[in-house]
Design a protein around this nucleic acid. Structure first.
Length: 481
DNA sequence: GCCAAGTGCGCC
DNA sequence: AAAGGGCGCACTTGGC
């Protein structure tokens, strides 16, 4: 069950070969280990461990050699050591796993399935406006597969709906004009959720522990983030209906904490942008400020829709999104309709208002033009590219990567202080950490978690304030501060 | 039947 | 001048 470890791209065999000039005979690896071990197997196992001692000093030297002058001469050994110290936390997460309220989950699954059937039925009933004689979808659902992009596209085009693709980006703007597209999107959403989550999660319940133990890949993402599989607990739908099914054991509570707007705070820190710094230092709302700046309204006149627009702008533009993508992103993810001209104008005003961000982009653009093939976070984490990276990758890595550094540092600190409590680490989702602890300890444990996360982020974000939202409840959903 | 690539979409 | 990033999974498609 426990598979924790730094799963790297280099095998031990390769390392031994390259650095020690030793050929490891791996033929024993696939031998039968269930019987009493042969002397060959014992030798193989011992050598596999002994080789690590020889590799250690060589690898440490290599890590020390990689210094970055621009980042206070920090070397890679530091970030590597943080990864090493993070490993026990990862092992704990996998071992502890999460508890799923199976009957609740199955009730939710049944509801989703009936909703899905209803959506499919609606799809078959709907007639296209202006084409009342023609029933698009009996044909569509009887003879074509609604999961086939090819067939769906052909059907939509046959009825004169102007689309080139059937993805959300194309369909969402059309949903308000064509009920059939609304129904199709509803169906697809429900079928995604039922297939990927409702049906699959119960299969991952461990027969002995009755809990779900996914695999966390400590360096699963090139940014330094974790990835998570079997099942992917980092992609559980965020609505309460799904997350309240992940529960604490009887007598226990789930304590969860997440960083508030961590990526935007990192941008404020890295760019030194005056407006962003000011808004965070005053504890104000960055999205409202952006809304005011791009629409020209006074802060108090900003509507909820303006604020949603601003979220799309903030999250999109800091990583170099263009006007056309901003337009469809705002529509698809935030339900805000923009013309291309508006998108262009907002993009322009965003960079006029946040001049520090514009300059930060300029700096990265220059290194992009110089053809750089690597990027570092403030903590010293390095990402390298075999070929020339895209600009957006260079813009993103210092931010997403530092978020990973901060969360991992928090896990390291947490592992130390949690030992004296009954709390168990059960999950982490990029900027969020979940613990499960005896109810009586919940207050104490949430204070510890809060402290660890704040201190870790402050180390890099100072003087930008750090905010951690923390909730205690009997499940992953709901809960109170 | 299997496999790899492509499409689409869940999360941060 | 312009260019969002990072994942994992279900399903189809096209080839064997």
């Amino acid at each position: 069950m426990l598979t924790a470890g730094l799963k790297t791209s280099l095998s031990l065999q390769t390392l031994a070969q390259k650095l020690l000039n030793i050929e490891l005979d791996k033929t024993q690896q696939v031998s039968d280990w269930s019987q009493p071990l042969t002397s060959k197997q014992l030798q193989y196992a011992a050598l596999d461990a002994a080789i690590l001692l020889k590799l250690y000093p060589i690898l440490v030297k290599k890590l020390e050699r990689w210094r970055s002058l621009s980042e206070g001469n920090s070397h890679l050994l530091k970030i590597a050591q943080m990864e090493f110290h993070c490993m026990p936390a990862v092992a704990q997460m996998e071992l502890n796993g999460m508890l799923l309220d199976l009957s609740r989950w199955k009730r939710l699954g049944a509801k989703l399935e009936s909703d899905q059937d209803a959506a499919l039925h609606q799809l078959s009933q709907l007639r296209i406006a202006g084409n009342a004689q023609m029933s698009l979808l009996p044909e569509m659902t009887d003879t074509i597969n609604p999961n086939s992009p090819q067939q769906v596209l052909a059907a939509l085009q046959a009825f004169g709906i102007p689309v080139n693709s059937t993805n959300q980006k194309e369909l969402v703007p059309l949903a308000k004009h064509y009920p059939v597209i609304r129904a199709l999107l509803d169906y697809r959403h429900l079928s995604k959720i039922t297939a990927t989550f409702a049906d699959s999660l119960p299969k991952h319940i461990h027969p002995v522990t009755a809990r779900i133990h996914p695999t966390y890949y400590q360096l699963g993402a090139r940014s330094g983030r974790f990835s998570c599989r079997n099942p992917p607990l980092q992609t559980i739908p965020r609505d309460a209906a799904a997350r309240t099914c992940f529960v604490a054991a009887p007598g226990y509570r789930i304590v969860r904490a997440d960083y508030s707007q961590i990526e935007l705070r990192i941008v404020a820190r890295l760019s030194g942008d005056a407006q962003m710094q000011r808004v965070y230092r005053k504890g104000e709302d960055l999205h409202r400020l952006t809304a005011a700046l791009v629409t020209g309204k006074a802060i108090d006149a900003v509507s909820e829709e303006d604020r949603r627009l601003a979220k799309a702008i903030n999250f999109g533009l800091i990583y170099g999104m263009g006007a056309a993508k901003l337009q469809s992103y705002a529509e698809t993810k935030y339900g805000v309709t923009l013309s291309l001209e508006e998108a262009k104008a907002f993009r322009k005003r965003f960079f006029e208002a946040y001049t520090g961000v514009a300059e930060w982009h300029g700096t990265i653009k220059r290194s992009y033009i110089r053809g750089t093939k690597q990027s570092r976070t403030l903590a010293g984490r390095r990402r390298r590219w075999a070929d020339k990276p895209r600009l957006a990758e260079l813009l993103n890595h210092p931010v997403q990567g530092l978020n990973a550094d901060i969360t991992k540092l928090a896990l390291v600190k947490l592992n130390k202080v949690l030992a004296e409590t009954g709390a168990k680490l059960i999950c982490t989702v990029h900027d969020e950490i979940l613990l499960e602890c005896p109810a009586v300890e919940a207050k104490h444990v949430s204070d510890l978690l809060h402290r660890c996360m704040i201190v870790s982020a402050q180390k890099f974000l100072h003087p930008i304030p750090v905010v951690v939202d923390i909730k205690v409840s009997s499940s992953w959903g709901g809960g109170e501060a």
